[in-house]
Simulated scan of single mutants.
Amino acid sequence: MDLNLDTQDRKILAELTENARIPIAELARRVGLSKTPVALRIKHLEEIGLITGYRAILSPLKLGLTHVTYVEVSMNDTREHALQQFNAAVRAIPEIEECYMIAGSCDYLMKVRSRDMADFRRILAEKISVLPHVSNTSSHVSMEAVVEQNWTAI
């Protein structure tokens, strides 16, 4: 999909990615346009689905969620109905920060945040291992976040 973004659109997106609460007047000043064209460009970027929303980004560390584990999940059934059941059940577990269906030695890869190893062990036993159609899991504990960011490359 070719979005035909010009330099001004890219500047607006870069600024909004850094601070979505920036006042239109300040945003306009930074990108070198007046307020009305900036507002119209933002509205257009929202209408075409490039900007999908605005939200507060919470600090997992301040919330005490300092433990990150990546969990590989293998399924005992990969027919569409089984995948849909699994996907719906995963979405209901708040500790699963990300979950991707992947091609490779397992079927899914998920990022799980928890307070500590004991908390992760509970989440794994009580929530992840009992998900529909899970045959086995393999966990990889993160020791340090080297890069952790939202999508900003425009």
Rank of each mutant, 00 (worst) to 15 (best):
R21F: 04
E144H: 12
I96N: 03
I12A: 01
Q149Y: 00
G104Y: 07
A56F: 09
T66V: 10
F120I: 00
N87A: 10
I154Q: 09
S138F: 13
V147L: 12
H140L: 14
T152K: 14
L65Y: 14
I12K: 05
V112Y: 09
N76A: 06
A125M: 08
F120C: 02
P94G: 03
R91W: 00
W151F: 14
N136R: 13
F86Q: 02
H81V: 08
E126F: 05
L124E: 13
L16R: 11
D2G: 11
A118E: 10
A56V: 11
R91M: 03
Q149I: 01
V130S: 13
G32Q: 07
G53A: 11
I93P: 04
L33I: 02
A153K: 15
A14E: 12
N136F: 08
Y54M: 05
I24D: 11
Y54K: 14
A25Y: 02
R122N: 07
V134W: 02
M143I: 15
A82C: 09
S135N: 01
I48H: 04
P94V: 03
P37M: 06
I57P: 01
K62D: 12
V147I: 14
V141H: 10
I42E: 07
K62F: 10
D6R: 12
V147W: 02
I51G: 07
S129L: 15
E72Y: 11
V134R: 03
V73Y: 05
M75T: 13
I42A: 05
L109Y: 08
L50H: 08
W151H: 10
A89C: 01
E46N: 07
L16I: 06
A25W: 01
